[in-house]
Structures are given as structure tokens and as C-alpha cells.
Amino acid sequence: MKLGADLRGFCERLGHDFAQPDLLIQALTHPSMASPTRGDNQRLEFLGDRVLGLVMAEALFDADRDAAEGQLAPRFNALVRKETCADVAREIDLGTVLKLGRSEMRSGGRRKEALLADAMEAVIAAVYRDGGFDAARAMVLRLWHSRIASVEADARDAKTALQEWAQGRGEPPPEYLELSRQGPDHQPVFTIEVRLSGGQRAQATAGSKRQAEHAAARTLLEQVSAG
């Protein structure tokens, strides 16, 4: 099976040349496009999630040999969560090569976080099945490199800490509002505002909602802590 120009370009962004192109096709096929002769990516997603988890666990274990399990666990969770997988998928423009049914295409499936995250995990599995664990690990470490380097060591992320601060004062949880979304679908920029019931608020801008929410929470947490 020969891949079209769009999929060859995607393989270049992945950094993996498939010996079995049908694995890549299956990884990119959403259930809405499945048929008796064309499988979807759900089984590969299941496998890819486990491959990603092992690569991340090993990378974090080797990167900080003094970290306790309580420090490693939140870093691991931040790296393998669906939001992170979707962010990586956007960076390599995975949405443009997804094979979607008409209903999903009409509803903006190429931009949906869940679909992008699932497909990213399926692609990891496809690389694993095609080239083995070393090939999958090399690809994941390359695509996740900056995230591994910058993942926070603190066991509590900023959103959790801000929520605990509010709850400790008998206030409801913080509210997060999307103020704007700009840029192309494969490289969006979000501006998020976080508000507390007491009127305190802060804004932040980042390449994903999750990153912007965490940045806004961190800013507001610093404000209320200083006050």
C-alpha cells in the first residue's frame, strides 16, 4: 500500500517511515469511518495508551533518580493525560489526516480534543507494532521532549492548589472562562480567565486550554497568597 502525499508528510512529522502503512491508516480511522473491510483505531488506542505510559514512566524514572513516587506520579499524570496527547497531536497537525465520517466532519471532529488524543495514542501503537518498542519510544520522547523537561515537580498543580485555597476559606471552586481563541486549528491560542467568588481574577494565554488555565491559576494563587 502506498501512502498519499499528505500521509507521507505526516510520517515525516512523526519521524517514522512505516513498513506496514495499513497500521497508520487504521490508527487514523475514527469509528465513524469504520466498515466491515476497514477497522477503526479503538484497539490501537488501547495499546498506545499503555506504550505511552511505559515510555513516560521510564523517562521520568531516569530523569530524576532522587524523586519519590509521590513526586513522580503527578508528573506522569500531566504527561499522559488526554489534554497533553491532544496538544501533541495539534503540533504535528494530526487533525488534517484523520479519517472521519461525515457527521464528525460537520461537527468539527478534526479539532475535538478527545478525537485528537485518541488518535495520537493509536498512532503511538501503530509505530510500536510497525517498528517495535525502541521506535515508539524514540518517537514519543522526541514529540514529548519539551514537556518532559518542563513538567512540574510539585505534587500539586496550580489549579488544585487554588481550589484547595478557596475551599479552605469556605468558598466555591474557582471558575474558568474562555475569553478568546485565536490562530489556526492546528496551532490555537487560548486566553483564559480564572475567577474566585470574592472577586479576585487573573488571565493567561497559552497554546491549549489546560496550559492557559494552569497559568491563570498560578498567577491568581500568587496574588492571593501575597495578599
Rank of each mutant, 00 (worst) to 15 (best):
M1D: 00
M1P: 09
K2N: 11
L3W: 05
L3P: 00
D6I: 09
E12C: 00
E12Q: 10
Q20D: 11
Q20W: 08
P21N: 07
D22G: 05
L23E: 06
L24M: 04
I25R: 10
A27W: 08
A27K: 02
L28W: 04
S35W: 14
R38V: 15
G39T: 08
R43P: 00
L44V: 07
L44H: 09
E45K: 12
G48L: 06
L52H: 05
L52A: 03
G53C: 13
M56F: 09
E58H: 14
E58F: 09
A59M: 05
A59C: 02
L60H: 12
D62T: 11
R65G: 00
R65Q: 12
D66S: 15
D66F: 15
G70Y: 12
G70C: 05
Q71Y: 09
L72P: 01
A73R: 15
N77S: 12
N77V: 11
A78Q: 07
A78L: 10
A78I: 04
R81Q: 14
K82R: 12
K82G: 01
T84C: 09
T84Q: 10
A86Q: 04
V88A: 00
A89W: 12
G95M: 03
T96G: 04
T96E: 14
T96A: 15
V97M: 05
K99N: 12
L100T: 00
G101Y: 04
G101A: 03
R102D: 02
E104L: 07
M105K: 13
S107N: 06
G108N: 07
G109W: 10
E113M: 08
E113H: 03
L115K: 14
A119F: 10
A119M: 07
M120P: 07
E121G: 01
V123D: 06
V123E: 08
V123R: 04
I124S: 01
V127D: 02
V127Y: 07
Y128N: 00
G132Q: 10
A135Y: 03
A136W: 05
R137Q: 12
R137M: 10
A138L: 06
V140T: 06
V140E: 03
L141F: 05
S146T: 02
S146E: 11
S146V: 02
R147I: 03
R147H: 08
R147Q: 13
I148M: 12
S150Q: 13
V151C: 08
E152L: 02
E152Q: 14
D154P: 08
A155C: 04
R156H: 15
D157N: 15
D157W: 08
A158Y: 13
A161Q: 15
L162Y: 11
L162V: 07
Q163T: 14
E164D: 13
G168W: 14
G168Y: 14
G170H: 07
G170R: 08
P173G: 05
P173S: 12
G183N: 02
Q187K: 09
P188A: 06
F190W: 10
F190D: 00
T191C: 11
T191P: 02
I192F: 11
Q200V: 00
Q203K: 14
Q203L: 14
Q203F: 13
A204K: 06
A204M: 08
T205R: 12
S208Q: 03
S208G: 05
K209D: 00
K209N: 03
K209W: 07
R210Q: 07
Q211F: 06
H214V: 13
R218L: 12
T219P: 00
L220Q: 07
L221T: 01
Q223A: 10
V224E: 04
